[in-house]
Design a protein around this nucleic acid. Structure first.
Lengths: 156, 156
DNA sequence: GCCATATCGTTCGTGTACGCACGATGGCCA
DNA sequence: TGGCCATCGTGCGTACACGAACGATATGGC
């Protein structure tokens, strides 16, 4: 990795008005993107099933808590757009982990539930869930871990 | 929003062995996904140009600091896979915000730089950058904001 | 009962994100 | 000098993410 591209003398940022310079690496949005990237990578190798993604996992965990949920409500519970939810649910249904039936009381809705196979799968993954979080938080001390979770909760 | 779907009596998580229950809403990965979602939404409405995405923005900011960078090196600086970088750069080049030329010293590389239009655009966006971060961190107190940035830096 | 309004799920388009495989090129060392 | 291995950029496949528009259905106010 030679040729490290020499830095310019002064980043002329137009917004560093006598205060601290604006560094992209210090901005929340940037840090959240990077942190999320790392968390996803750890999830993928530690959850125990390379075919399950983080969003699929949270959807299945929620469906395990509630027996049946409409697609939109599930999306609200796990923080996913209905368009995004559509794709997630389709993939889970293709793999026979989730089943659906029309809501008898509301013809607009579809009720989702885990199949037997889906329940078996979530319960297996749930055993690895804590380890995934532990690994992601490993660089932090115990109090720091709790602090981070609390701060993230506040800005979500 | 009636029909809130009744909760089951006990979430039988298989992993809540006498310790605290496993709640998906308390896991780092989940919180990071939600926080990143919110940060992206705030960016989109506050950066001042709805056609610029967060990743495009950080790429342009880095290209503004360094005069010229190869595509791979830029990707490493802003934390993006080379396959992801490819798409980002293509879109910026399509809009004439970024230009490229072959590296005279290494035929494998392409050197990227901002066009005049690109420089004008970044400098305009950089004026809004601090406001985006401020808005994202608004739910937190001053010390909490600094703590969050520090903790995120540690786990990236 | 009727109609304006809202919700539900789908589809389309665009943009990140990354693994994998590929061909071209470069660096290093036997 | 030749060959091995790394790096660079590209292309493909898959998956999240969301705005916008759509048709079907439900609800509340009149």
């Amino acid at each position: 990795m030679r040729n490290v591209a020499k830095k310019q003398q002064e980043p002329k940022t137009a917004a560093s008005s006598a205060s601290r310079p604006y560094r992209i690496e210090e901005q929340v949005g940037y840090l959240l993107r990077r942190a999320h990237q790392r968390a996803s990578a750890i999830f993928q190798v530690s959850i125990g099933d390379p075919n399950i993604t983080p969003t699929q996992y949270s959807s299945m965990v929620k469906l395990n808590e509630y027996s049946e949920l409409s697609q939109n409500l599930l999306g609200r519970l796990v923080g996913m757009d209905k368009a995004t939810m559509q794709g997630v649910v389709r993939r889970l249904k293709d793999r026979r982990l989730v089943d659906s039936r029309p809501d008898p009381g509301d013809a607009r809705r579809t009720l989702l539930s885990l199949t037997t196979d889906g329940q078996r799968t979530v319960n297996k993954l749930l055993m690895n869930g804590p380890a995934v979080s532990r690994e992601t938080l490993k660089p932090l001390s115990g109090p720091e871990q709790r602090q981070l979770l609390e701060l993230l909760s506040k800005i979500v």
